Amino acid sequence: MTKNFDAQSLRDFARAMFLSAGLREDDAALVAGDLVKANLRGVDSHGVSRIPMYLERLRRGLVNPQPTVHVSKVAGAVAHVDGDNGMGFIASDVAMNAACDIAGEMGIGLAGVHRSTHFGMGACYALRAIERGYISLIFTNSSPAIPMWGGRTTFLGASPIAAGIPGGKHPPYVMDMAMTVIARGKIRLAAMKGDPIPEGLALDVEGVPTTDAAKAFEGVCLPFGGVKGSVLGTLMDLMSGVLTGANFGGDVKSLYFDHSGPQNVGHLFFALRPDLFMSLTDFGARMDDFYGRIKELPRAAGVDEIMLPGEPEARREVERLRDGIPVTDNVIADLTAEGARVGIDFPRALAAA
């Protein structure tokens, strides 16, 4: 069962919870905003359900609540960002903005991050770059979730890739996808609800295919597209981990199961000015032309409309801002309990329609 909640009430709750864990005012608001943004866009696996897990790592001293994020210019168009083991949202916000700043001057900007943690929904950073008028490409590595092709143990992370391209009069292109068949967080949500998962998504700890979400979450997620997903996952780890100085090759610590030390996740943020090869007006017109062409394509059976990547999520955000964000009863119970620990009330649900 689910109940619907006003987005601002969830932001206020999340912000208060992170303030109680020692985050600075601006940082707590940033993290809260990004988590609720994920819920608004329908990416509930990366939304407020993750608050207890983040708080646990903060309580254990594995995440620095008030990091000093340091940005070093290492080449004309490149910055290196030290996240100081703070929340990945914070270092990543700094890095995406640094990449955009450099791109404004140089045409293209690159920021590599090390000593970071899980950074939430990758689309948040693509949307930030779009708001500033830039094309973006975002890489990250993560804790082991999928095998190298041919292996049966976890080695590579789900390691999503995200990208954003500003539109003209029509919606922008926003892509955000993990290297797993589905995001590992969605398997976690299914496990929390006691729901099964479809075949072909995961193996249990013995390397046996399973539809049990709990066993799948403890086991191995399978890469999308078989060997192609594994190859892309390898690229994410090499570029985000090896290149930036972060952990790599199975060394990124699990958010959920490994409390032995900081994660040291690595990220890579590219920003590009869209007016490098033509005027911004011409670029916007070409994006509008592209959008118009896909809307006129012949549709497959059962398809009502062909949409640009990011368009379904943008529409869902409009709906959820109007009708509220659905939160499952088990997540409500977890968040209510977390709030009770520090004397913060979980908000009331919206009245049923």
Rank of each mutant, 00 (worst) to 15 (best):
D44H: 08
D212Y: 01
I294P: 00
E338T: 13
L62P: 13
T68V: 12
C100L: 01
E218K: 15
D195S: 14
F248D: 15
F217H: 13
S20K: 14
A340C: 06
G292D: 00
E313M: 00
G47S: 01
G151F: 02
A79L: 09
M177P: 09
Y173L: 15
F346Q: 09
G61E: 02
V318M: 08
F217V: 02
F283Y: 15
P67D: 09
P262S: 12
P172F: 07
S9Y: 00
P144C: 09
N4R: 14
V48S: 02
E311N: 10
C100G: 08
V331A: 09
I182M: 00
L272N: 05
C100N: 04
M17W: 01
G167F: 03
H46I: 06
S49K: 05
L137A: 05
R322K: 04
D27Q: 14
P172N: 08
L308E: 05
P262R: 04
R11K: 15
A75S: 11
I108T: 12
V252D: 11
L156K: 02
P223W: 08
G229W: 01
F217A: 02
Y291M: 00
L222Y: 11
G225V: 14
L238G: 09
G219I: 09
D204E: 13
V318I: 13
F13Y: 08
H259C: 12
N4K: 11
H118Y: 09
L23G: 05
A14N: 04
L280T: 06
R128M: 10
I161N: 10
N247L: 09
V265A: 09
L62F: 09
L58E: 13
N4C: 12
R188V: 03
A183G: 10
I90A: 12
A216N: 03
P326F: 01
F248T: 15
F257T: 15
A213C: 02
L238S: 10
H267I: 04
G284E: 10
A190H: 03
E305W: 05
A183V: 00
P166C: 07
V71E: 07
R184F: 10
G266P: 06
